[in-house]
Structure formats: C-alpha cells, structure tokens
Nucleic acid binder design. Sequence first.
DNA 1: TTAAGTACTAACAAAAAAGTAAGAAATGAG
DNA 2: CTCATTTCTTACTTTTTTGTTAGTACTTAA
Lengths: 128, 128
Amino acid sequence: MRKFTSTNAFNEKLINDSCGMGRALNIVGGRWKPAILYKLHNGTMRYGELRKSIEGISERMLVAQLRELEQDQVIERIVYPEVPPRVEYRMTELGKTMGPMLEAMSEWGDIHRANVADKYGNPGDGEK
Amino acid sequence: MRKFTSTNAFNEKLINDSCGMGRALNIVGGRWKPAILYKLHNGTMRYGELRKSIEGISERMLVAQLRELEQDQVIERIVYPEVPPRVEYRMTELGKTMGPMLEAMSEWGDIHRANVADKYGNPGDGEK
DNA sequence: TTAAGTACTAACAAAAAAGTAAGAAATGAG
DNA sequence: CTCATTTCTTACTTTTTTGTTAGTACTTAA
C-alpha cells in the first residue's frame, strides 16, 4: 500500500494531475502492462492463457497488474460461475481508445531499436 | 548501479528486446522524463531553466534523468566553456521522432482524465 | 579574502516495484 | 476421501527508484 504523504507520492500526483503524458504513463507503465495490453488488444483472454503467454510473469504480478488496469477502467474482468473457475479479461471501450497511443509507442520503440544500441549491449539495426 | 543478473533486470531486458512498447516505455518512463521531454519539445533549455520550471524535481533526479535520455540518444547536452558554466539541452533528431508518440500519450492521458476519477480522488470531468 | 553564480556529484535513506514460495477455495471425477 | 483444476492470496525478500543533504569546481566581482 502506498503512503500518500511521501514526497514521492506527492510528486507522482502532481505529475498525474498536470500532465497528460504523466497520467498515461502511470496507467500503461510498469514491467508487465505493455505485454498484457498487447495481448488483450487482440481479444479476450482467460487468466491462465495470459499467464502462459507472457513469459516470465509471476502470478502475483499478473494479478496485481490486471487489478490496476481494471481500476483504471481500461480492462474488465468477467467471471463465469463455473468449476473450475473461469475468468476472462478484455479491453473496455475506454481501453480500446488506447489503440493509437499503443501503436505510436510500439512503432517508436521499433524506430529506436533500429537506431540505437541499447544498454544491454544489443546493437541498433544500423542506418542503411 | 543495477545488477544485470537479477530476475528483475532479466525480465526488463526480455521485454525491452521483444516489445517496441516496452522499449519506448523504458525510455520515456520514470517520474520526471515526461516533464523534461515536454519542456525540451518546445526548444533548447539550460540546466537551471529546467530545474526552475519543473516543480518538485531535485538536482539529483534532474541530472540522472537527463543522463539517461542522453544515453538513449533522444536529447543532447551542449557545454559552453564559459564561467559560470552554461549547459544546454535539446532534442536530437531521433528525439524529435518521438513527437507523434508524445502527442498520442498526452492526448490519451487527457481522455482518461476526462472519463475516470483517479486514485487520488480527483473526479473525472464527466461524460456530458 | 570572500561571496556569488552555475552545473553538477556523492553518500545515504526512504519508498515503491518486482520476485519467491506457499497455500486457499470450490467442486467434480474417481 | 483424495486428487486435479483454475484463479487467485498472503507473507516475506530482493531490487530498483526516488528523495535528502551536503558538498565540489571554476572564475569573476567586490
């Protein structure tokens, strides 16, 4: 849980309030959210499908990030009262409005990769 | 300094490598980068101007984030051999290609703010 | 000699994000 | 009664990010 009185939290709020970019980043940022959003961008998925298709994610992180995205109203959680349980996740209408932004980010990431070696030592793809 | 052997760092790299969005987020994400990029988007600025115009940022964070942006080759640092020192920062050509992405993020952040109350208690601007 | 201005740097502390491991509920199959 | 299945929880640790405070270097001006 966060303390809303720390300087850190205060600054986060300040930026969230004053800057659209800051707010967008608060929602799509984080280690796993890009992957989750990318998957759900292509359609509804069950919890287990997400877990299997996102390499390296732990259950705790998957649940946590799904919950945050749900709170931010960009995805929704649909529970089927079956046993064993079935839970599906999908984009909300508001979530779907992220499309252009997600594509712009994805494209620019690729542009950057094509031009710049990253800090892990992967070379850029070269200029020509 | 980071350990490149932690699971955390490994996962970061994995996402950076496989996903344009993840890579873009690594570059523009962080508490202060949106603000810095927004300022430099409008033109060259000196270190001190940036510091004064970005409310709440500490010198340490400003320098750190400028250094990262410089390493990622989206901004450049120009030192004038004067006394007292003068250092200017501005977008590189590659940095300027971020334009559409930054605008998409900014716009979507505003859309989200207009529709959703945030976790700090600010209401959405309402639907009608 | 001392202060002022500018752009930092270093050492440390606090807060937040991410990872690990184990378990829990609900129920049908055997 | 025990096991398997699925979707999570909980408690705890590690790693990373952010913030705080106090300097430093260099020259000019008083």
